[in-house]
Structures are given as C-alpha cells and as structure tokens.
Nucleic acid binder design. Structure first.
Lengths: 228, 228
DNA sequence: CGCGGCTTTGATGTTCATCAAGTAAAGTGG
DNA sequence: CCACTTTACTTGATGAACATCAAAGCCGCG
C-alpha cells in the first residue's frame, strides 16, 4: 500500500466522493494524511475530541462501546471503504466509541474543517452524505434488532455467515477476532460462544481448528440463522 | 390547533429550520400541508413509497417494525418537534416502519422534492440536517443497547422514568400505551410487564390504577434503572 | 520456565418466556 | 342502555434458555 497516494487515483475511494469535482478532490487530498495502524492499535478513543474525518482504506477494525460495568460491546466492524464514526463526526464534539485495528490497517484522516467546507459548498455532496448516514444508521439499528431477537445458535450462525459472505467471500477463513470478541459482538458469554461452536462442529456444520473455520453446511447454517 | 398556519409563526417549529431564510420558509410553507391524525390513525406504513418529509407538531406517535414472526417492536416514540422517518427520508425509497398515532396528533407533510431543493441549495441547512440525523441515530442506538443490557426490572424502571421526565414532566401521568405496547418497547412479554409493575406497586415504588401511574419513590426507581 | 490470558467442558442456579385460567374493561350491535 | 363479544389485564405454575461458577488444559510471551 502506497502511503498518501492521490485521492483521484485511490482504488479504495468510496462512492461518497463521486460528487466531488477534480478540484474538490484535490482540496481533500491536500487536507488528508494516510496512516498505518498496526494490529491492536487505537484509531479513535471514546472521549477524544473529533477533529478528523476518518476513512478506512485497508484492513479491519472494530468499533466498541464500554458498558457501565466496564464490559465492552462491539457495535460494528468496519472494512475498507467504510467511514469510521461517520454518524457522530458532524454532530458530536467527542468520539463515543473506541475504534481499534483487528489487523494491520490503513486509514485516511481528512481534516474535519475541509469536509465541512465541502458539505456546505456542494449540495449534491451533502445530499449523498445524508443518504450515507441514513443507510448506515439503518443498517446498524436493523442489525442490532436482528441479533437481539435471535437465540444463541442463531446469533453464532449469523456472524459466521456474515464473515463468510461479507468479509472473506469464502467458506473457509481465519476468524479475525477472539471468542471473547465474538461474544461482545452478539451479546453473549464467551463460554456459550465456545459451547455452540463446538456443537456446530460435532454436528458437522463447520470444521474448526483454533481460529480457522470452514463452513461445511452453509444451507443449514443459514436455516439456523433465520429460524433462531 | 390551527390547521396550516404559516411556518414562520409556528410555535412548534424545530431548530432544524433555523438556517432557512424568510423566503425559504415561505417556500416550505407553500409546499406543506398540515393534517390531523386521530388516535390509532396511520401516519406512515412500512413499504409505502416515501414522498414526504413528515414532522410532528402535536401529539404522540409510535414507530414500530414488524419482526419475522409478525411480532411488533416499538423502535421509538416521537413527540412534537420530532421528525418521522428522518433517518430514511433521504436515503430510502420506501418506509421501513409503521408509524401510528397514540393520541390525536397533528403532522406537517412537506413535499420531499422541496426539502431536497433546500438541502442542495443551502449548505448550512444541510449541515444541520446531517447533525440532526447523527444525533437521532446515536440516541436510538444508545437507547437500544441500554434496554438490551438491562434486566426486566431495570427496563420497566427505565421507561417509567423516561415517561415521567421526558414526556410528562410530572411524577403522575396517564400511560399513553397499553401493557402490550410497553412490552414491545422494551423487548419483554406483557405478562412480565404486568408482574413487575405489580411488584413495584407492592413495594411502594409506584401507585397504579389502570393507566394512571404515580411515581412515589423516584430515587429508588432510578437506582433500579441504573443497576438493572 | 512460569505467569496470565484465552480456550474448553461440566455442573449449578437464575431469569425469563410460555402456558393456562380467570377477571376486568371496552367496544358493538340490538 | 343492556346483553354480548372481544380485547386487555392479572396471577400462578412450569420449563427452557442462558449466565455464572469452577476447574483444567493450552498458548504466547517476558
């Protein structure tokens, strides 16, 4: 990955920027910097002032909130071409979530002032941002309800299928998160995550060695997800 | 309530419209109509095409989604000065939620095209909309997590305190919703709603006659909400 | 090597949904 | 306005799902 390449040639540029002119893209480019964040590194921290618009170009990151008992909950994972903190970047003073890299990742940090300038000067761009925010929040809300309305087997099936279809585009992959983090994603205990994974293995739904998973019976897994 | 009064003089106008000029407000006014919706009446229906920007000026409405088993879930209640479906109005083709009036209510329906025009022409207005959407979605997400992380007593305490503090500004009020609807708001069964309300009454936390509630021990109720 | 965190399995207990059955309240039609 | 029907409300008993606790094996890391 080439650091600080020009936005115009960026393969990972989101459609969000489609409405910007060459000149405007140039302006953005001059007001951004690209950064490598090592696995485990912190991208934004809850409580820190929001000064930048953060965009993920490579890697995988988790966005989590801290419950009152100090228990962590993972609200969502972000992939390349996702924005980090888009929901609050224009509306809050401080970050509400911790965002950390699950694998080595690259982020672009665009100065918030220049984004504000683009928004107020380019009406089509701002309409697109509004659409984006609406879609993202809708997805998060729907996803949260989906998880909470399923039993534990359904929840595990849900994230296994999601990992396979949305993240790795393969039936076999290495889990990028620990059992504990899986539990934080779908509101259950690590013990039960393990228990149900073992159960799925016993039943021949998946094969499992450490973090390596292969889905052997996708149809049944999807059924469990949908009926759970 | 006077029907179709001019936006400029509307006491219930949201701060969202602060950035509009007199001329722009006039334009909005010409492209809106005010409507009375009787208790139980439908304001938007899931699946219907979105053609208007809906704004609540008086009353109380519930926004609900239908789960796959046909079970209804109340995502949020809206009060005067709230927007209805703001999260999806610019980003989706069709409504995702049913919105119905809990009491006789007034809504303003502003043509979506004229809103789009204002957004793309007035940068400060669009920045405000972005802020609004960010805030609302943040609140909904936070609220959803709050409910799901609490035990049943904590959930009941939560909505009782919310009704008292946010909606009625009084320790005594008439519940605007049935026990079943309370259950749909906080993801539990009507039986358990009733059980815990009865328990709170036995313990002297509240007095309860039908839909009339009076909170007798707010401090303890808040403790139950926060520790639940 | 040894320590701490992650993983795994089993045993136990609590919380909550479900089922059942009865009472009160609110519509509905004559 | 009253009988009738339906819907909302209420309480108790039962069982299932899940969290918690406990203990042991594993792995990575200083």
């Amino acid at each position: 990955m080439e650091l600080n390449q020009h936005c115009q040639n960026c393969k990972f540029r989101s459609h969000l920027f489609d409405k910007l002119s060459e000149e405007e893209l140039n302006y953005i480019h001059k007001n951004k910097k690209t950064q490598l964040v090592k696995k485990g590194g912190i991208i934004t921290k809850s409580g820190d002032p929001i000064r930048e618009f953060v965009y993920l170009t490579e890697g995988l990151v988790k966005m989590q909130k801290i419950g009152r008992n100090g228990k962590e909950q993972i609200v969502s994972l972000a992939r390349p071409m996702d924005f980090i903190g888009l929901l609050s970047v224009f509306s809050r003073e401080k970050y509400e979530y911790n965002v950390t890299a699950l694998v080595d990742s690259f982020v672009c940090r665009i100065s918030l002032d220049s984004m504000r300038k683009m928004v107020s000067e380019n009406g089509l761009f701002s309409l697109d941002i509004i659409k984006f925010i609406g879609n993202i929040s809708g997805e998060i809300i729907k996803h949260t309800y989906a998880i909470n309305s399923k039993n534990l087997r359904g929840r595990i099936a849900l994230i296994l299928v999601d990992f396979s279809e949305k993240f790795f585009h393969s039936q076999a992959f290495d889990l990028p998160i620990s059992r504990k983090e899986m539990a934080e994603m779908i509101d259950m205990t690590p013990e039960n995550v393990i228990r149900i994974l073992s159960e799925f293995r016993r039943d021949g739904l998946i094969s499992l060695r450490g973090k390596h998973i292969e889905i052997l019976n996708m149809d049944l897994l999807i059924k469990i997800r949908d009926l759970g």
